[in-house]
Amino acid sequence: MPLFARVLGADFDALPPAVQRLHRAQGMRRYHGEVEVRRGHGPLSRILAAATRLPPAGTGPAQVDIRAGREEERWTRRIGGRAMPSRLWESRGLLCERLGLARFGFRLHAQDDAILWRVARVSVFGIPLPAAWFRDVVARESGQDGRYHFDVRAAMPVVGLLVHYRGWLHVE
Rank of each mutant, 00 (worst) to 15 (best):
R46W: 12
G81C: 08
D65W: 12
V35H: 12
L88A: 07
A51F: 04
A131Q: 12
I127W: 09
R118P: 00
G100I: 02
S91C: 11
I79D: 09
G60C: 03
H23I: 04
L99C: 05
A110H: 06
I66N: 08
W75S: 02
Q111G: 07
G93S: 10
L161H: 02
G81P: 08
L54Y: 05
R153I: 00
P56M: 01
F4N: 07
Y165Q: 13
A18V: 01
I127N: 06
F125S: 10
L162W: 08
A155Y: 03
E72S: 14
R107V: 07
G143K: 07
A155Q: 11
P56H: 02
L161V: 00
R87A: 11
A131W: 06
A155K: 07
H109Q: 15
I47Q: 01
M1I: 06
Q111Y: 10
D13H: 13
E90V: 06
D151R: 14
P16A: 03
L169M: 11
F12C: 03
G160C: 04
R77P: 11
R78Q: 10
A155M: 04
L129D: 05
F106A: 00
L99D: 02
L48C: 02
M84K: 05
L22G: 01
D13T: 13
P128F: 00
F106R: 00
M84E: 13
R135M: 00
L15F: 12
T76M: 05
Q111V: 15
V7K: 04
Q144R: 15
G93Q: 04
D136F: 05
V163W: 01
A83E: 15
R140Y: 01
Q111M: 09
R39K: 13
P130D: 06
I47A: 09
A10P: 13
P157C: 08
A110L: 08
A57P: 14
Y165F: 15
G27V: 03
V152G: 03
P16H: 10
G167R: 14
L54R: 08
L48I: 12
T52W: 00
D136L: 08
G105I: 04
R92F: 05
G69P: 04
R38T: 06
R98V: 01
L108P: 01
Y31N: 07
P43R: 15
Y31C: 13
V159P: 01
L48G: 00
S86I: 00
S86T: 04
A50G: 08
S142A: 15
A49C: 02
T76V: 15
V119S: 01
Q63L: 13
Y31Q: 08
A132Q: 14
D136A: 14
L48F: 11
E73L: 09
V124M: 09
R74W: 01
V152L: 14
R103L: 12
G40F: 12
W117R: 05
V19C: 00
H41A: 06
F150H: 14
R39D: 08
R118H: 10
A68V: 00
A25E: 10
L108H: 09
S45F: 12
W168R: 14
R53M: 04
L108A: 02
P61G: 14
A83D: 14
R147E: 10
Q144N: 09
T52G: 02
S45L: 05
V138A: 14
I47Y: 02
H23N: 13
I115L: 05
G143Y: 09
R74H: 14
G58I: 04
R77G: 10
R107K: 09
A110D: 13
L3W: 07
G33I: 11
V124L: 11
R153F: 00
